[in-house]
Design a protein around this nucleic acid. Structure first.
Lengths: 217, 217
DNA sequence: GTCTATAAAGGGATAGAC
DNA sequence: GTCTATCCCTTTATAGAC
Protein backbone atom coordinates (compact mmCIF):
# COMPACT_ATOMS: atom_id res chain seq x y z
CA UNK A 1 0.00 0.00 0.00
CA UNK A 2 3.01 2.27 0.01
CA UNK A 3 5.31 2.31 -2.96
CA UNK A 4 3.54 -0.50 -4.73
CA UNK A 5 0.77 1.91 -5.59
CA UNK A 6 2.95 3.28 -8.34
CA UNK A 7 3.68 -0.06 -9.93
CA UNK A 8 2.18 -1.15 -13.19
CA UNK A 9 0.87 -4.71 -13.39
CA UNK A 10 2.94 -7.18 -15.37
CA UNK A 11 1.12 -7.99 -18.52
CA UNK A 12 1.67 -10.00 -21.61
CA UNK A 13 2.56 -8.00 -24.71
CA UNK A 14 -0.78 -8.95 -26.08
CA UNK A 15 -2.78 -7.23 -23.38
CA UNK A 16 -0.49 -4.23 -23.33
CA UNK A 17 -2.82 -2.27 -25.55
CA UNK A 18 -5.79 -2.85 -23.28
CA UNK A 19 -3.73 -1.77 -20.33
CA UNK A 20 -2.90 1.46 -22.09
CA UNK A 21 -6.57 2.02 -22.85
CA UNK A 22 -7.39 1.60 -19.19
CA UNK A 23 -4.65 3.93 -18.02
CA UNK A 24 -5.60 6.60 -20.51
CA UNK A 25 -9.27 6.37 -19.63
CA UNK A 26 -8.41 6.50 -15.95
CA UNK A 27 -6.27 9.59 -16.39
CA UNK A 28 -8.90 11.37 -18.38
CA UNK A 29 -11.59 10.77 -15.80
CA UNK A 30 -9.45 11.20 -12.71
CA UNK A 31 -8.15 14.53 -13.97
CA UNK A 32 -11.50 15.72 -15.19
CA UNK A 33 -13.66 14.73 -12.23
CA UNK A 34 -11.21 14.06 -9.44
CA UNK A 35 -10.42 10.84 -7.67
CA UNK A 36 -13.48 10.60 -5.46
CA UNK A 37 -16.00 11.32 -8.19
CA UNK A 38 -14.53 8.82 -10.62
CA UNK A 39 -16.14 5.42 -10.32
CA UNK A 40 -14.64 2.18 -11.49
CA UNK A 41 -17.68 1.63 -13.61
CA UNK A 42 -17.08 4.90 -15.44
CA UNK A 43 -13.45 3.99 -16.09
CA UNK A 44 -14.49 0.57 -17.32
CA UNK A 45 -17.02 2.07 -19.68
CA UNK A 46 -14.61 4.68 -20.97
CA UNK A 47 -11.93 2.06 -21.55
CA UNK A 48 -14.39 -0.33 -23.17
CA UNK A 49 -13.96 -3.15 -20.66
CA UNK A 50 -15.94 -4.50 -17.76
CA UNK A 51 -15.45 -3.71 -14.12
CA UNK A 52 -14.19 -7.20 -13.43
CA UNK A 53 -11.48 -6.79 -16.04
CA UNK A 54 -10.42 -3.59 -14.37
CA UNK A 55 -10.03 -5.40 -11.10
CA UNK A 56 -8.04 -8.12 -12.86
CA UNK A 57 -5.42 -5.48 -13.67
CA UNK A 58 -5.66 -3.37 -10.54
CA UNK A 59 -6.49 -4.65 -7.12
CA UNK A 60 -8.26 -1.46 -6.10
CA UNK A 61 -9.19 2.01 -7.25
CA UNK A 62 -6.27 3.39 -5.30
CA UNK A 63 -3.83 1.18 -7.19
CA UNK A 64 -5.30 2.29 -10.48
CA UNK A 65 -4.92 5.91 -9.46
CA UNK A 66 -1.31 5.40 -8.47
CA UNK A 67 -0.50 3.66 -11.72
CA UNK A 68 -2.26 6.27 -13.85
CA UNK A 69 -0.42 9.15 -12.20
CA UNK A 70 2.88 7.37 -11.61
CA UNK A 71 3.23 6.27 -15.20
CA UNK A 72 2.58 9.79 -16.39
CA UNK A 73 5.59 10.87 -18.38
CA UNK A 74 5.67 14.48 -19.31
CA UNK A 75 7.48 14.77 -22.59
CA UNK A 76 6.35 18.37 -22.59
CA UNK A 77 9.40 19.53 -20.75
CA UNK A 78 11.74 17.76 -23.13
CA UNK A 79 10.93 20.05 -26.01
CA UNK A 80 11.13 23.12 -23.83
CA UNK A 81 14.45 24.71 -23.17
CA UNK A 82 16.10 23.29 -26.22
CA UNK A 83 18.84 25.12 -28.03
CA UNK A 84 20.04 26.42 -24.72
CA UNK A 85 23.68 26.24 -25.64
CA UNK A 86 23.36 28.06 -28.91
CA UNK A 87 24.48 31.68 -28.86
CA UNK A 88 22.00 34.50 -28.93
CA UNK A 89 20.58 37.24 -26.78
CA UNK A 90 20.03 35.86 -23.31
CA UNK A 91 16.94 37.92 -22.76
CA UNK A 92 15.40 36.59 -25.94
CA UNK A 93 15.90 33.08 -24.69
CA UNK A 94 14.50 33.89 -21.28
CA UNK A 95 11.44 35.36 -22.89
CA UNK A 96 10.84 32.26 -24.96
CA UNK A 97 11.29 29.97 -21.98
CA UNK A 98 8.93 32.06 -19.95
CA UNK A 99 6.23 31.91 -22.61
CA UNK A 100 6.59 28.17 -23.12
CA UNK A 101 6.67 27.39 -19.42
CA UNK A 102 3.68 29.52 -18.61
CA UNK A 103 1.68 28.08 -21.46
CA UNK A 104 2.43 24.62 -20.14
CA UNK A 105 1.68 25.45 -16.51
CA UNK A 106 -1.61 27.15 -17.33
CA UNK A 107 -2.79 24.58 -19.85
CA UNK A 108 -6.22 23.27 -18.85
CA UNK A 109 -4.94 19.71 -18.79
CA UNK A 110 -2.08 20.67 -16.51
CA UNK A 111 -4.40 22.52 -14.17
CA UNK A 112 -6.83 19.63 -14.08
CA UNK A 113 -4.07 17.17 -13.29
CA UNK A 114 -2.68 19.34 -10.52
CA UNK A 115 -6.09 19.75 -8.96
CA UNK A 116 -6.64 16.02 -8.75
CA UNK A 117 -3.18 15.11 -7.54
CA UNK A 118 -3.04 17.91 -4.99
CA UNK A 119 -6.40 16.94 -3.59
CA UNK A 120 -5.22 13.39 -2.86
CA UNK A 121 -1.76 14.36 -1.75
CA UNK A 122 -2.47 13.85 1.93
CA UNK A 123 -3.68 10.31 1.39
CA UNK A 124 -1.18 9.34 -1.29
CA UNK A 125 2.00 11.33 -0.76
CA UNK A 126 4.11 8.91 -2.79
CA UNK A 127 1.87 9.40 -5.79
CA UNK A 128 1.91 13.18 -5.65
CA UNK A 129 5.65 13.22 -5.09
CA UNK A 130 6.17 11.07 -8.18
CA UNK A 131 3.94 13.48 -10.07
CA UNK A 132 6.12 16.39 -9.02
CA UNK A 133 9.39 14.63 -9.79
CA UNK A 134 8.25 13.59 -13.26
CA UNK A 135 6.91 17.04 -14.07
CA UNK A 136 7.89 20.24 -12.33
CA UNK A 137 11.12 18.84 -10.93
CA UNK A 138 12.29 17.79 -14.35
CA UNK A 139 11.51 21.20 -15.75
CA UNK A 140 13.45 22.86 -12.94
CA UNK A 141 16.45 20.65 -13.61
CA UNK A 142 16.56 21.61 -17.24
CA UNK A 143 16.26 25.25 -16.39
CA UNK A 144 19.01 24.90 -13.82
CA UNK A 145 21.29 23.41 -16.45
CA UNK A 146 20.61 26.28 -18.77
CA UNK A 147 21.34 28.86 -16.08
CA UNK A 148 24.55 27.11 -15.07
CA UNK A 149 25.74 27.28 -18.65
CA UNK A 150 24.70 30.92 -19.00
CA UNK A 151 26.56 31.79 -15.82
CA UNK A 152 29.65 29.98 -17.03
CA UNK A 153 29.77 32.05 -20.20
CA UNK A 154 29.15 35.28 -18.34
CA UNK A 155 25.72 35.87 -19.84
CA UNK A 156 24.36 35.92 -16.29
CA UNK A 157 26.13 36.69 -13.05
CA UNK A 158 27.31 33.76 -10.98
CA UNK A 159 24.84 32.42 -8.42
CA UNK A 160 23.36 29.08 -7.36
CA UNK A 161 21.61 27.95 -10.55
CA UNK A 162 19.03 25.80 -8.79
CA UNK A 163 17.84 28.77 -6.79
CA UNK A 164 17.81 30.95 -9.88
CA UNK A 165 15.65 28.39 -11.66
CA UNK A 166 13.05 28.40 -8.92
CA UNK A 167 13.07 32.16 -8.76
CA UNK A 168 12.64 32.42 -12.50
CA UNK A 169 9.63 30.13 -12.44
CA UNK A 170 8.28 31.97 -9.44
CA UNK A 171 8.57 35.49 -10.77
CA UNK A 172 7.04 34.47 -14.09
CA UNK A 173 4.24 32.52 -12.53
CA UNK A 174 3.31 35.02 -9.86
CA UNK A 175 -0.19 34.08 -8.77
CA UNK A 176 -1.31 33.03 -12.22
CA UNK A 177 -1.21 29.30 -11.59
CA UNK A 178 -2.83 29.63 -8.20
CA UNK A 179 -5.66 31.61 -9.73
CA UNK A 180 -6.06 29.02 -12.45
CA UNK A 181 -6.21 26.26 -9.85
CA UNK A 182 -8.86 28.22 -7.97
CA UNK A 183 -10.89 29.10 -11.08
CA UNK A 184 -10.43 32.80 -10.46
CA UNK A 185 -11.39 34.78 -13.48
CA UNK A 186 -8.97 37.64 -13.76
CA UNK A 187 -10.46 40.81 -15.09
CA UNK A 188 -8.00 41.87 -17.74
CA UNK A 189 -4.96 39.77 -17.08
CA UNK A 190 -5.66 37.48 -19.96
CA UNK A 191 -5.23 40.27 -22.45
CA UNK A 192 -1.80 41.43 -21.44
CA UNK A 193 -0.32 38.06 -20.59
CA UNK A 194 2.59 39.02 -22.79
CA UNK A 195 3.19 42.17 -20.79
CA UNK A 196 3.21 40.18 -17.54
CA UNK A 197 5.71 37.74 -18.96
CA UNK A 198 7.91 40.50 -20.34
CA UNK A 199 7.88 42.26 -17.00
CA UNK A 200 8.80 39.08 -15.17
CA UNK A 201 11.70 38.40 -17.50
CA UNK A 202 12.83 42.00 -17.07
CA UNK A 203 12.80 41.65 -13.29
CA UNK A 204 14.75 38.43 -13.46
CA UNK A 205 17.33 39.86 -15.80
CA UNK A 206 17.78 42.99 -13.72
CA UNK A 207 18.60 40.75 -10.79
CA UNK A 208 20.85 38.33 -12.65
CA UNK A 209 22.54 40.39 -15.32
CA UNK A 210 26.34 40.47 -15.21
CA UNK A 211 27.58 42.76 -12.49
CA UNK A 212 29.94 44.97 -14.44
CA UNK A 213 27.31 46.19 -16.87
CA UNK A 214 25.74 49.54 -16.00
CA UNK A 215 22.03 49.99 -16.50
CA UNK A 216 21.23 47.20 -18.92
CA UNK A 217 18.06 48.78 -20.23
CA UNK B 1 -27.10 26.48 -6.40
CA UNK B 2 -24.84 29.23 -7.68
CA UNK B 3 -24.08 32.16 -5.45
CA UNK B 4 -26.41 31.03 -2.72
CA UNK B 5 -23.88 28.39 -1.81
CA UNK B 6 -21.89 31.03 -0.04
CA UNK B 7 -24.76 32.31 2.05
CA UNK B 8 -25.08 31.66 5.74
CA UNK B 9 -28.49 30.64 7.04
CA UNK B 10 -30.40 33.25 8.98
CA UNK B 11 -30.46 32.26 12.58
CA UNK B 12 -31.70 33.61 15.83
CA UNK B 13 -29.02 35.06 18.10
CA UNK B 14 -29.61 32.15 20.41
CA UNK B 15 -28.62 29.52 17.90
CA UNK B 16 -25.72 31.55 16.63
CA UNK B 17 -23.29 29.66 18.81
CA UNK B 18 -24.42 26.32 17.50
CA UNK B 19 -24.04 27.57 13.97
CA UNK B 20 -20.48 28.57 14.72
CA UNK B 21 -19.79 25.16 16.18
CA UNK B 22 -21.06 23.56 13.02
CA UNK B 23 -19.04 25.80 10.73
CA UNK B 24 -15.88 25.29 12.70
CA UNK B 25 -16.34 21.54 12.80
CA UNK B 26 -17.06 21.51 9.09
CA UNK B 27 -13.94 23.51 8.30
CA UNK B 28 -11.76 21.30 10.41
CA UNK B 29 -12.97 18.12 8.74
CA UNK B 30 -13.25 19.47 5.21
CA UNK B 31 -9.71 20.82 5.35
CA UNK B 32 -8.30 17.76 7.04
CA UNK B 33 -9.95 15.06 4.98
CA UNK B 34 -11.23 16.83 1.92
CA UNK B 35 -14.77 17.41 0.75
CA UNK B 36 -15.54 13.95 -0.56
CA UNK B 37 -14.23 12.07 2.46
CA UNK B 38 -16.09 14.22 4.96
CA UNK B 39 -19.50 12.81 5.82
CA UNK B 40 -22.34 14.74 7.33
CA UNK B 41 -22.37 12.29 10.19
CA UNK B 42 -18.76 13.10 11.02
CA UNK B 43 -19.48 16.83 10.97
CA UNK B 44 -22.52 16.31 13.18
CA UNK B 45 -20.52 14.30 15.66
CA UNK B 46 -17.66 16.79 15.70
CA UNK B 47 -20.07 19.67 16.21
CA UNK B 48 -22.01 17.80 18.87
CA UNK B 49 -25.33 17.81 17.05
CA UNK B 50 -27.33 15.29 15.11
CA UNK B 51 -27.44 14.89 11.39
CA UNK B 52 -30.99 16.13 11.24
CA UNK B 53 -29.95 19.34 12.95
CA UNK B 54 -27.23 19.81 10.40
CA UNK B 55 -29.79 19.54 7.63
CA UNK B 56 -31.98 22.03 9.44
CA UNK B 57 -29.22 24.61 8.95
CA UNK B 58 -27.92 23.54 5.57
CA UNK B 59 -29.95 22.02 2.83
CA UNK B 60 -27.07 19.89 1.55
CA UNK B 61 -23.44 19.07 2.07
CA UNK B 62 -22.53 21.38 -0.79
CA UNK B 63 -24.23 24.29 0.91
CA UNK B 64 -22.40 23.55 4.14
CA UNK B 65 -19.12 23.48 2.25
CA UNK B 66 -19.83 26.79 0.58
CA UNK B 67 -20.75 28.43 3.86
CA UNK B 68 -17.74 27.03 5.68
CA UNK B 69 -15.30 28.26 3.06
CA UNK B 70 -17.13 31.44 2.13
CA UNK B 71 -17.37 32.66 5.70
CA UNK B 72 -13.67 32.08 6.17
CA UNK B 73 -12.12 35.36 7.12
CA UNK B 74 -8.38 35.42 7.16
CA UNK B 75 -7.36 37.87 9.80
CA UNK B 76 -3.85 36.56 9.27
CA UNK B 77 -3.12 39.06 6.56
CA UNK B 78 -4.28 41.96 8.68
CA UNK B 79 -1.38 41.66 11.06
CA UNK B 80 1.10 41.20 8.27
CA UNK B 81 2.52 44.19 6.51
CA UNK B 82 1.87 46.57 9.34
CA UNK B 83 4.11 49.49 9.99
CA UNK B 84 4.60 49.84 6.30
CA UNK B 85 4.68 53.60 6.36
CA UNK B 86 7.21 53.90 9.14
CA UNK B 87 10.72 54.78 8.03
CA UNK B 88 13.46 52.20 8.04
CA UNK B 89 15.61 50.18 5.71
CA UNK B 90 13.46 48.95 2.87
CA UNK B 91 15.30 45.69 2.60
CA UNK B 92 14.74 44.97 6.26
CA UNK B 93 11.04 45.41 5.74
CA UNK B 94 11.01 43.24 2.65
CA UNK B 95 12.80 40.53 4.55
CA UNK B 96 10.26 40.60 7.33
CA UNK B 97 7.33 40.53 4.94
CA UNK B 98 8.87 37.63 3.10
CA UNK B 99 9.31 35.61 6.26
CA UNK B 100 5.80 36.31 7.49
CA UNK B 101 4.20 35.61 4.15
CA UNK B 102 6.04 32.38 3.61
CA UNK B 103 5.28 31.18 7.09
CA UNK B 104 1.61 31.83 6.44
CA UNK B 105 1.58 30.22 3.00
CA UNK B 106 3.39 27.10 4.15
CA UNK B 107 1.47 26.69 7.39
CA UNK B 108 -0.07 23.22 7.56
CA UNK B 109 -3.53 24.69 8.00
CA UNK B 110 -3.11 26.89 4.94
CA UNK B 111 -1.87 23.99 2.86
CA UNK B 112 -4.72 21.78 4.01
CA UNK B 113 -7.28 24.46 3.15
CA UNK B 114 -5.79 25.05 -0.29
CA UNK B 115 -5.79 21.34 -1.03
CA UNK B 116 -9.47 21.01 -0.27
CA UNK B 117 -10.60 24.15 -2.04
CA UNK B 118 -8.46 23.53 -5.11
CA UNK B 119 -9.76 20.00 -5.42
CA UNK B 120 -13.37 21.21 -5.59
CA UNK B 121 -12.66 24.27 -7.67
CA UNK B 122 -14.00 22.76 -10.87
CA UNK B 123 -17.35 21.92 -9.27
CA UNK B 124 -17.66 25.03 -7.11
CA UNK B 125 -15.80 27.87 -8.82
CA UNK B 126 -17.68 30.54 -6.84
CA UNK B 127 -16.51 29.02 -3.59
CA UNK B 128 -12.87 28.79 -4.59
CA UNK B 129 -12.94 32.29 -6.00
CA UNK B 130 -14.30 33.63 -2.72
CA UNK B 131 -11.54 31.74 -0.95
CA UNK B 132 -8.93 33.44 -3.10
CA UNK B 133 -10.43 36.90 -2.74
CA UNK B 134 -10.66 36.64 1.03
CA UNK B 135 -7.13 35.31 1.34
CA UNK B 136 -4.41 35.66 -1.24
CA UNK B 137 -6.06 38.58 -3.01
CA UNK B 138 -6.28 40.55 0.19
CA UNK B 139 -2.65 39.90 0.93
CA UNK B 140 -1.67 41.04 -2.53
CA UNK B 141 -3.63 44.24 -2.11
CA UNK B 142 -1.85 45.10 1.11
CA UNK B 143 1.50 44.40 -0.45
CA UNK B 144 0.58 46.52 -3.44
CA UNK B 145 -0.25 49.41 -1.16
CA UNK B 146 3.08 49.10 0.56
CA UNK B 147 4.97 49.05 -2.72
CA UNK B 148 3.08 52.04 -4.04
CA UNK B 149 4.09 54.00 -0.96
CA UNK B 150 7.69 52.85 -1.20
CA UNK B 151 7.83 53.88 -4.83
CA UNK B 152 6.37 57.27 -4.00
CA UNK B 153 9.13 57.94 -1.48
CA UNK B 154 11.82 56.72 -3.81
CA UNK B 155 12.71 53.70 -1.75
CA UNK B 156 11.93 51.58 -4.79
CA UNK B 157 11.93 52.51 -8.44
CA UNK B 158 8.62 53.40 -10.01
CA UNK B 159 6.70 50.53 -11.57
CA UNK B 160 3.19 49.06 -11.51
CA UNK B 161 2.81 48.15 -7.83
CA UNK B 162 0.30 45.36 -8.42
CA UNK B 163 2.70 43.57 -10.70
CA UNK B 164 5.54 44.10 -8.25
CA UNK B 165 3.44 42.56 -5.49
CA UNK B 166 2.79 39.40 -7.49
CA UNK B 167 6.41 39.15 -8.49
CA UNK B 168 7.53 39.56 -4.90
CA UNK B 169 5.26 36.75 -3.75
CA UNK B 170 6.33 34.66 -6.68
CA UNK B 171 10.06 35.01 -6.28
CA UNK B 172 9.84 34.33 -2.55
CA UNK B 173 7.53 31.38 -2.95
CA UNK B 174 9.34 29.71 -5.80
CA UNK B 175 8.15 26.12 -5.83
CA UNK B 176 7.92 25.88 -2.06
CA UNK B 177 4.14 26.06 -1.85
CA UNK B 178 3.65 23.70 -4.76
CA UNK B 179 5.92 21.17 -3.10
CA UNK B 180 4.03 21.56 0.15
CA UNK B 181 0.74 21.01 -1.65
CA UNK B 182 2.17 17.88 -3.25
CA UNK B 183 3.74 16.55 -0.04
CA UNK B 184 7.19 16.63 -1.58
CA UNK B 185 9.82 16.24 1.09
CA UNK B 186 12.67 18.49 0.12
CA UNK B 187 16.03 17.12 1.03
CA UNK B 188 17.72 20.03 2.72
CA UNK B 189 15.55 22.98 1.86
CA UNK B 190 13.99 23.07 5.27
CA UNK B 191 17.30 23.86 6.90
CA UNK B 192 18.22 26.89 4.88
CA UNK B 193 14.77 28.38 4.51
CA UNK B 194 16.23 31.65 5.70
CA UNK B 195 18.84 31.57 2.97
CA UNK B 196 16.17 31.00 0.34
CA UNK B 197 14.14 33.91 1.64
CA UNK B 198 17.16 36.19 1.82
CA UNK B 199 18.09 35.29 -1.73
CA UNK B 200 14.58 35.98 -2.95
CA UNK B 201 14.49 39.37 -1.27
CA UNK B 202 17.90 40.13 -2.74
CA UNK B 203 16.69 39.29 -6.23
CA UNK B 204 13.61 41.43 -5.83
CA UNK B 205 15.57 44.39 -4.52
CA UNK B 206 18.15 44.15 -7.29
CA UNK B 207 15.29 44.43 -9.75
CA UNK B 208 13.39 47.20 -7.98
CA UNK B 209 16.04 49.31 -6.29
CA UNK B 210 16.12 52.95 -7.27
CA UNK B 211 17.75 53.42 -10.63
CA UNK B 212 20.37 55.99 -9.78
CA UNK B 213 22.05 53.87 -7.12
CA UNK B 214 25.05 51.90 -8.31
CA UNK B 215 25.57 48.37 -7.06
CA UNK B 216 23.42 48.27 -3.96
CA UNK B 217 25.25 45.37 -2.38
C1' DG C 1 -35.05 22.95 16.66
C1' DT C 2 -33.60 18.65 17.98
C1' DC C 3 -33.53 13.91 18.23
C1' DT C 4 -33.85 8.46 16.59
C1' DA C 5 -34.69 5.56 13.00
C1' DT C 6 -34.97 4.54 8.33
C1' DA C 7 -35.59 4.90 3.47
C1' DA C 8 -33.16 5.07 -0.94
C1' DA C 9 -29.29 5.06 -3.95
C1' DG C 10 -24.81 4.48 -5.32
C1' DG C 11 -20.68 2.18 -6.05
C1' DG C 12 -16.50 -0.79 -4.53
C1' DA C 13 -15.36 -5.33 -4.83
C1' DT C 14 -16.17 -10.33 -5.86
C1' DA C 15 -18.27 -15.06 -7.39
C1' DG C 16 -18.60 -17.94 -10.88
C1' DA C 17 -19.23 -19.10 -15.85
C1' DC C 18 -16.77 -19.04 -20.22
C1' DG D 1 -8.48 -12.69 -19.11
C1' DT D 2 -13.02 -11.34 -19.68
C1' DC D 3 -17.72 -11.11 -18.88
C1' DT D 4 -22.61 -10.81 -16.10
C1' DA D 5 -24.77 -10.59 -11.96
C1' DT D 6 -24.72 -9.64 -7.27
C1' DC D 7 -23.31 -8.84 -2.48
C1' DC D 8 -22.80 -5.49 0.93
C1' DC D 9 -21.50 -1.47 2.98
C1' DT D 10 -21.51 3.47 3.20
C1' DT D 11 -23.77 7.71 3.06
C1' DT D 12 -27.12 11.18 1.75
C1' DA D 13 -31.36 12.81 2.98
C1' DT D 14 -35.89 12.57 5.25
C1' DA D 15 -40.02 11.05 8.34
C1' DG D 16 -41.99 11.50 12.46
C1' DA D 17 -41.91 11.98 17.60
C1' DC D 18 -40.81 15.36 21.28
Amino acid sequence: MTTSELALPRVTPRSRRKLDQILQAARQLFFKQGFAATTMEAVAKEAGVSKATLYAYFKSREMLFGAAVGALDNHYTASLISGATTPGDIREKLLRFAKDILELLLHPQTIAAYRTVVSESARFPEISEAFYVNGARRLLDRLEGFFAAAMATGALRSAPPDRAAEQFIGVIRGDLMLRALLSVKSKRENDDADAIIASGVDVFYRAYRPEESGSGK
